[in-house]
């Protein structure tokens, strides 16, 4: 049962990711990304990470993707253009990606033989366990993300604001 569900949603995730790249119109790509994010949430659930699955649905498939689609719709950007550079990147890039993925896959398959089955549900999954990790062991990185977010907002404001005209 788990295997069947895994295969279905893994296939969805891969198809969504491929479609994201192949689509010419940004809104279609954004919608494909929602498929990828939601399929990933199901995969997390299958691994027994309920909290992560919910967070994935709410934050990624929900909030972030809504923002994405809104921005794309508001900007009303046109279709992707093909230039000489993009064709060159395509002819070199796709074989390079295939080689890279093949190397990664081979390495992971080789490594996989040394590892047994793992079930995440044995470990930390409840919110209480998570909070222990988040607010004790990883307190510093957790607090640091606030600086990271602050700097991202600051940067967005700095870049998006119009010049005063005296530049």
């Amino acid at each position: 049962m788990h295997l069947v569900l895994f295969l279905i949603f893994a296939l969805f995730a891969l198809a969504g990711a491929a479609n994201l790249l192949l689509q010419k119109h940004p809104i279609n790509s954004a919608l494909s990304l929602i498929v990828v994010m939601s399929s990933l949430a199901v995969l997390y659930l299958l691994l027994g990470a309920e909290f992560l699955a919910m967070a994935q649905v709410i934050v990624y498939a929900g909030a972030i993707m809504v923002l994405f689609t809104f921005v794309v719709m508001l900007l009303n950007e046109g279709r992707e253009e093909k230039t000489w550079g993009s064709r060159a990147a395509r002819t070199v890039g796709f074989p390079a990606v295939v080689v890279l993925l093949a190397t990664l896959a081979a390495a992971i398959l080789r490594a996989g033989r040394h590892y047994g089955m793992v079930s995440l549900s044995d470990g930390i999954t409840t919110t209480q366990d998570l909070s222990k990790v988040l607010f004790r062991d990883l307190l510093l990185p957790f607090e640091l993300t606030s600086v990271l977010i602050l700097i991202a907002i600051l940067g967005a404001v700095a870049l998006a604001r119009k010049d005063d005209g005296n530049a």
Binding site: L154, A158, R161, D164
Partner: peptide
């Protein structure tokens, strides 16, 4: 140039963190 230097200095200092 004159404009938006407040954010500029804040960005440098945060980057240094």
């Amino acid at each position: 140039p004159q404009h938006h230097r407040g954010e500029f200095f804040a960005l440098i200092v945060f980057g240094a963190v």
